[in-house]
Design a protein around this nucleic acid. Sequence first.
DNA 1: GGTAATTTGTCCGTATGTATT
DNA 2: CAATACATACGGACAAATTAC
Lengths: 248, 248
Amino acid sequence: MTTSKQSAKLTRYQLVAQVLRQEIAAGTYGIGQCLPTEHELCQRFSASRSTIRKAIEGMRDLGLVEARSGYGTFVISLQPQEKVVQTLSSFEDLMQYPAETYRKQLEVRTIKASPELALMLQSSTEREWLWLQAMRLTQYSQAPISWLDAYIALEFSDVVGLPNPAGASLLKQIQDLYGVQAANARVEVFVTAIDEKLSEPLGVARGTPALAIIRRYSNPEDGSYLVTRSVHPENRFRLNFDLEKHLP
Amino acid sequence: MTTSKQSAKLTRYQLVAQVLRQEIAAGTYGIGQCLPTEHELCQRFSASRSTIRKAIEGMRDLGLVEARSGYGTFVISLQPQEKVVQTLSSFEDLMQYPAETYRKQLEVRTIKASPELALMLQSSTEREWLWLQAMRLTQYSQAPISWLDAYIALEFSDVVGLPNPAGASLLKQIQDLYGVQAANARVEVFVTAIDEKLSEPLGVARGTPALAIIRRYSNPEDGSYLVTRSVHPENRFRLNFDLEKHLP
DNA sequence: GGTAATTTGTCCGTATGTATT
DNA sequence: CAATACATACGGACAAATTAC
């Protein structure tokens, strides 16, 4: 049932693409095998080379084939590989706090990763990090929303000295100050219990359930450069996200 | 610093695209405004129409401009809008349980959404759903992993009668049986406490913290057709996901 | 290693169709 | 209806990459 609308008038390149896609899906050309040359396809479909190329171009966008000069156009996937897209326009959207909250820095110091911490940071035990402890509070009532431990690569230490009236995230502050952008974020969500240390600042009893979220930001140039662990006591935070299917 | 490699030899259409993109970024053509016509661009760049079109085509793929026959090509964004991509190949990957777990169905019945339930399902209070209660257990020790409440659109009721030796998700079972695919998933993660009802089947004390995940699957044809709420007691489950930046 | 043949990539000019104004 | 502007299609030419001899 891949051919849905026979009645609809297809353009010539759409028709060529449809036929070739069906043949690829049917396995006429296996993965790695070459399609006929553009010249041969011109003859087969009685079409000009630009029409054939336009058809192939669409299949390349779908990730079905790949073309190499002097060699040919070969199949790399039997079906367009779908991706699932999280509908964010940026990593900052991942954690959306109301605008009326702000981050209050409590302590900043340099530490060397202990074995335990290195596990969480997924770094070596040698590496030094800037450790920032902070809380997120509502602007007016100053009610605590969450606790934050942030581990920042030393080369970006200066962000912690910046004034932050808009309540921007560390990720965005680093981006603005150093021009460093995250290419990848690894997110981990789990349930934990409030321990002795966090009980008093968050104003909840020890053992209260909380949502912990670890986010590791990295890019090819700087590697893993920011790891944050936020702890949200029960009922103060929900993590929401939308996913959509997406054809490449 | 958008122009990175002056030295590299650019093709003609790449050069045209580069100039036009810089002009768009600089605000030469505001959002909603038209670029010069293809014919005018031909003259300005002393290039053929196909070269100009190839340049514009790239900018359309980037979401910078949109073209309408008989009207013109107009700017819709001043910069290529990045998306954040969750690196899943399918929705099934969203909840990855070890292969050695399976779903044990406990009870199935049809219900009409109460006001409270309708809120969670984001449906009308009139609508009827098939309510499935189940647990996920490890294959060998039969230790409980999680509790599952699933609400299934009535037209897909037959999935609950299917044998499921592979431990497939309901989402996948519906897809296999009816050919229905989800186009969208809305995910909500929060902390809850185990209540009286779940305490005994999960083998944990009442009040134990747990990770609750609500997933709503929908597509344009069937609307919201599957909503699941899984409850994972502390330390039995972590939600992980990777995000990547992605240029459209 | 070098040359020739093959194949895709880029570019041109023209003609016709289709949607909008 | 007419003019305008993008969409599709054709055929030809040369460049660049790859392969085979």
